[in-house]
Amino acid sequence: MQMHFEYSVEGGNFSQAGLTSSQVKKTLKQLNVNGAVIKRTVVALYEAEVNIVAHAYGGTILVDIDEEKIVIELRDEGPGIEDIGKTMEIGYSTATPEVREMGFGAGMGLSNMNNNSDLLEITSEVGKGTCVKIINHFKDDNNGNK
């Protein structure tokens, strides 16, 4: 089994934030993936998707699924991140008041993403954009241990 999906995300469009995560969740449910793994995956993805909407001009989400794992790549065009290490600190945020009004922007997103993925890789170029890669394995042996 090899599945590939691509979704585009519009920066600033909060009413659409979460649509990709919702579609990925439905796909994983149809594939009968373990419920705990689905939850970890979509929580990490949703935080990352909200980040594109909140901080970037737009982006693409690439999803690849095989028998063992899901690989998600979120590529955005945006301001990029100057200090990735700092964004991992709980409480650090550059979110606008608008983002905070949506219930985000408290500086928890990246640590949430990290806690809910087997592998999280973030690369960024200031002035160009950010790429976030999330890999989760379907065999649920990492759940809660990270």
Partner: peptide, 22 residues
């Protein structure tokens, strides 16, 4: 919502004053 997303319990109810799609 970021705080809600950290919760792993099942059979969970959310009480909130944040009324939006998120």
């Amino acid at each position: 919502m970021s705080d809600v997303l950290t919760v792993r319990s099942d059979k969970l109810l959310l009480l909130t004053g944040l009324v939006n799609i998120q």
